[in-house]
């Protein structure tokens, strides 16, 4: 439901970032993996930031059967 909206995208990225942080905080990772996770986290955070910075309200208007007379 509303999977392709900016908010849904943001939430997916944010959740992924949370998972990355959780895994890093669990803290029993090989160095290479924690480096990899960190890079991934930095990219996810940047993607979230980008979404917030560039967001513009998307407006769509529906046609309703008993709507107003078109004038």
């Amino acid at each position: 439901m509303s999977e392709n909206t900016p908010v849904a995208t943001y939430e997916t990225l944010y959740q992924q970032l949370q998972e990355v942080v959780n895994r890093l905080e669990a803290g029993t990772l090989p160095l290479e993996e924690s480096l990899h996770l960190y890079e991934q986290g930095v990219q996810l955070a940047a993607a979230c930031q980008h979404l917030l910075d560039t967001a513009e309200l998307r407006i769509e208007q529906l046609q309703v059967g008993m709507g107003e007379p078109a004038d």
């Binding site: 407006i59 208007q61 529906l62 309703v64 709507g67």
Partner: peptide, 24 residues
């Protein structure tokens, strides 16, 4: 501005307004 808006227009006054609001 991250959210999306879906406008469902309707009449807001007059005799037909209640039916229009329900339809919207």
């Amino acid at each position: 501005p991250l959210v999306e808006v879906l406008i469902s227009p309707c009449l807001v006054q007059g005799e037909q307004a209640p039916g229009s609001i329900v339809a919207a």
